[in-house]
């Protein structure tokens, strides 16, 4: 594994995308996980490091999911402090990914984009914008995905993700979208990427696919499409 990763790093800049820091744990982030991440960062010097606005542990129990946080001042204080802890340990700024939300809290006091902007300013971190997560939140919470990406402060964005999601539709006409990374990137997701990149300029884009992984050719076709959107923007600016 190290040989492969080392060879990749020698050929290209790499981005480390953590899912395990659990910065939203009220007891504090997962320190052993941070140490492991720090060792990897020292070894490979990735161009970008990121994790999620979420929690994955509570009272010692590990929960293998990215659970949502209430968007409150209290959460902002805690999360900014945890991001600061990570950045101090790694000696570099990190990116925080917008959540894929299936539900919202009654006590939410912030619009999600406002919360992310406040977090970035407070903690000095950047943002990783997953446009598929925005789509999932649109389906589940009724937000306007295009208005969301239009509101993002482009100067904070260091990386963009695209992916597929599944949607279950129920008898009462409602739907639940799940960010399962198990299907092709949707046309709406490509449109959101195009919209975001055409406004803020090109950024590194990751096509995420963890389940029902298709053929290499199909994966490359999605990577090629993402590259074409970036190249189009580079050509337009030039």
């Amino acid at each position: 594994m190290h040989d492969w990763l080392g060879a990749l790093r020698d050929a290209l800049p790499v981005s480390f995308h953590s899912v395990g820091l659990s910065m939203g744990d009220p007891g504090g982030l997962d320190e052993p996980e941070l140490e492991r991440l720090a060792i990897l960062c020292d070894r490979y010097a990735p161009a970008l490091v990121s994790d999620h606005l979420s929690w994955s542990s509570l009272g010692g129990e590990k929960v293998p999911d990215l659970l949502p946080l209430p968007m409150t001042d209290e959460t902002l204080d805690h999360f900014a402090a945890q991001v600061g802890r990570v950045q101090d340990r790694l000696g570099r700024p990190m990116l925080i990914e917008n959540p894929s939300r299936m539900t919202a809290f009654r006590m939410d006091a912030y619009d999600e984009v406002d919360f992310l902007h406040a977090l970035a300013r407070r903690a000095g971190c950047g943002l990783l914008v997953d446009v598929n997560n925005v789509l999932v939140s649109q389906i589940n919470l009724g937000i306007d995905a295009f208005a969301y990406v239009d509101a993002i402060d482009g100067s904070l964005v260091g990386e963009i993700h695209v992916a597929g999601h599944s949607v279950a539709t129920y008898d009462d006409g409602t739907s639940l979208a799940v960010d399962d990374h198990g299907s092709p990137v949707s046309e709406e997701c490509w449109s959101l990427l195009d919209r975001l990149v055409s406004r803020i300029g090109p950024r590194p884009v990751l096509v995420e696919r963890d389940n029902a992984v298709p053929s290499f050719e199909d994966l490359m076709a999605e990577a090629t499409r993402a590259n074409a959107i970036l190249a189009q923007e580079v050509a337009r600016v030039a």
Binding site: P64, D65, M102, T103, A104, N140, Y170, L176, V178
Partner: peptide, 23 residues
């Protein structure tokens, strides 16, 4: 705790529980 209809809340929680259990 959560906003939205009770059915929507329960579906969301069930999806999270399934993700955890499945993983």
């Amino acid at each position: 705790l959560l906003s939205g209809t009770r059915r929507a809340q329960l579906r969301a929680l069930k999806a999270h529980a399934n993700t955890i259990n499945h993983a």
